[in-house]
Design a protein around this nucleic acid. Structure first.
Lengths: 241, 241
DNA sequence: TGACCGGTTTGATATATGTCAAAATTCATG
DNA sequence: CATGAATTTTGACATATATCAAACCGGTCA
């Protein structure tokens, strides 16, 4: 299942993977962009539940999500597992694996998805030639560190409803950045997965959703969410105790 | 206070900052090592409480801790602050700032400390020339991402005593890697700071310490800690509920 | 040495979230 | 459209951790 995926290489065609719009939007000339395209190749046909990679897999490539979305999760020895992130179109996935040459988490498709595979050796070689690519790669890695710190803050010092509000606002902002509706969307993940990500039990997540709805902040039916009061959600965050 | 620090440049002297032993232990020839030394310079005289950098400061350099230890902390708008890490000798600090060109957290000395400043532009230029340096830099950034994911797991799914056990074992392991006693050491941080890092209140941290002591796992008096039963501490982690 | 002062420990109590269980809803399938 | 499985919601109750408060300790400075 994991490998039931067709893989194309179209050396000649620019924006093979639409990297331009996706993950490398800055500072590269058309010619430089072409060279990144040349080393990347498209992988299509990931269905909900398919693994992009598994914890322990040999590290070869980074992946730019071209369509769809993935979740990443780490498994503790004792069976506990935790979702460490939800990634959507345009985001880069696989950075965790560089340090050990093996992936440290699973990446699982949450819907029908496509990715651009970026062989890391080639990406490194190219970034030695192209300083702006090099800098961009560093920024992507740094952004991941900052993102993780934000989640640490969330997990370490926010209460349940603050966490959910922060989560919804973050989703909203990322959708907006992609030109999608920032107030009306379909969640791709279950209450269980949201809870795992936010360090909460699924019942707590569900109650927080209901509570937001009762207070007119959102409208929610199963996975269909509408954010009715963005400022209201924002002020929720930071309410100590 | 922050800038009451003397800064030396010793171009000619190799291992200016003992980078060899510190943070770049692999894959570089002596000559290559020398070139890293050449771009770095030592900054000494940080006392407990001194800032290495503050959130918002312009990003210029990474820092390799040469002596002593630092904590990093992020501040939420509403005044909440959270410790995101404790860094000790040989560790690299400042990676968060690359993505925005500004630091996103404070770095504060926890004791008398020294660092090697590594101007990032020069480090990037050099790593374009030296593939093994480039790879090493990527590994350092990736390791930080993996470390953060571990903390997310800790904050998201461990209970108070598991968190403290994980914290103590992590300290122990890092001390061992530096040839220091892994079972007997002086904590550099307060219960408050440990609590902030672990997402707990200081009283909860204190109770967990006492509890470990009552169970013969550790011996603790204020900041002096002795780990008496490492396997016991390890089995503590993973005890669901 | 003594007296402070910040940090730490301990106790009593409150509360947010977890747990368990059942009902309700949504989704997939034939 | 009907059936059943999976997910979500809701309720009652349990519990881990937070909160508040007081006592205790250890290092610092006169």
């Amino acid at each position: 299942m994991q490998q039931s995926v067709s893989s194309f290489r179209r050396k000649a065609v620019c924006s093979n993977c639409r990297l331009r719009e996706l993950c490398l939007p800055v500072g590269l000339s058309a010619g430089e962009m072409q060279r990144v395209d040349d080393i990347s190749h498209l992988k299509r046909g990931y269905a909900r539940g398919d693994y992009l990679y598994r914890s322990g897999d040999k590290f070869q490539s980074l992946y730019a999500i071209r369509k769809g979305s993935f979740k990443t999760q780490v498994l503790h020895e004792d069976g506990r597992e935790q979702v460490t992130g939800f990634q959507m179109t345009g985001e880069i996935i696989g950075l965790d694996a560089i340090c050990t040459d093996h992936h440290t988490c699973d990446a699982v498709a949450m819907e029908s998805s496509e990715v651009c595979e970026l062989p890391f050796n080639k990406l490194e070689a190219l970034s030695r030639e192209l300083p702006s690519l090099q800098r961009h790669l560093h920024k992507i890695m740094s952004r991941e560190i900052v993102r993780d710190q934000g989640i640490m803050l969330l997990l370490g010092s926010m209460r349940a409803e603050e966490r959910l509000a922060a989560f919804l606002l973050n989703l909203s902002q990322r959708l907006a950045a992609r030109g999608l509706s920032p107030t009306q969307f379909q969640l791709r993940m279950s209450r269980q997965e949201i809870g795992s990500y936010l360090g909460l039990k699924l019942e707590t997540v569900s109650r927080a959703f209901s509570n937001f709805q009762d207070n007119g902040l959102i409208s929610v039916r199963a996975r269909a969410v509408e954010l009715l009061d963005l400022p209201g959600l924002r002020t929720l965050i930071g309410k100590q105790q």
